[in-house]
């Protein structure tokens, strides 16, 4: 069965709402959760997630809210923290790894921390039992893929196209998927631009998909009530889970 990972921006709504949403996502077949850490300068994200980031900050998001939410979220579903490196570094990397570990978080997904810069934090991650998620991009050479995924833990995040989240058309990925698969047995999930229209196509040859902007777009829709937002997102999750396993 192929997996579905859902990205949700923390702090866009209060933690009670987000926990209800997480429970609904789980119920709809979601296998793992990325809790996004709002950041002032999210350069890997497109307009949808950027807007959610800035709105969460305007609502007064603080890291403590992520910590509190994680204590509850990890009881429901496998949870990863997804954020920009400065959010981790500012709190002291060792310190934040310990906080994450105590709350049962599985690992970190940091899009602006490439392989070379992860090395110095490897001992901390290992001691805390956390996975540093490895990224593979369509621009990567075979040699670089081999280096990056060699010790991959948790899952490998394949970026579907050169660009930012929630946009773009996927490059042909068969070659790159093949190259990753020859180097690592760690599950390979594809992200960026995955929605109900693209999910089936993008899931070909991989072990799962990561959906972010499509869900966050619903969260940002002010014409919907909170209940409607949860209902729409969970319907979407259920559909995607079915589509990728057809």
């Amino acid at each position: 069965m192929k997996k579905l990972v859902a990205y949700i921006t923390t702090g866009y709504e209060d933690n009670d709402f987000t926990l209800d949403l997480i429970a609904a996502l789980k119920e709809a077949g979601t296998d793992a959760l990325e809790l996004g850490i709002p950041f002032s300068d999210p350069v890997a994200d497109g307009p949808v997630i950027e807007e959610a980031n800035l709105k969460a900050l305007q609502k007064g998001f603080k890291m403590q809210q992520l910590f509190d939410l994680s204590t509850e979220a990890t009881k429901l579903i496998d949870t990863y923290w997804m954020g920009y490196f400065n959010s981790f570094y500012a709190k002291g990397f060792e310190n934040i790894a310990q906080i994450a570990s105590e709350r049962g978080v599985k690992g970190f997904i940091i899009p602006d921390l490439p392989f070379e810069e992860t090395l110095r934090y490897k001992p901390v991650m290992e001691n805390s039992g956390l996975s540093q998620i490895s990224f593979v991009a369509p621009t990567d050479s075979k040699e670089r893929i081999a280096k990056v995924v060699k010790d991959a833990k948790g899952f490998i995040y394949l970026v579907a196209y050169t660009g930012i989240t929630g946009s773009g058309t996927a490059a042909p990925l068969e070659t790159i998927i093949g190259e990753v698969k020859t180097c690592s047995d760690t599950p390979l999930y594809v992200g960026f631009g995955v929605n109900e229209q693209t999910a089936k196509e993008r899931a070909k040859g991989v072990d799962g998909v990561i959906v972010g902007s499509a869900f966050v777009k619903v969260l940002l829709d002010e014409s919907l009530t909170k209940t409607q937002k949860i209902a729409n997102i969970s319907t979407m999750a259920r559909n995607i889970k079915e589509l990728i396993n057809e």
Binding site: E117, F135, A137, D140, R144, T162
Partner: peptide
């Protein structure tokens, strides 16, 4: 080699840009 001036500098970019910078 990786652009570090002590602890400073380096490359903190999305993976897509790493091969381009290399």
């Amino acid at each position: 080699e990786l652009g570090h001036f002590g602890i400073f500098g380096g490359r903190y970019v999305p993976e897509t840009l790493m091969p381009i910078l290399e």
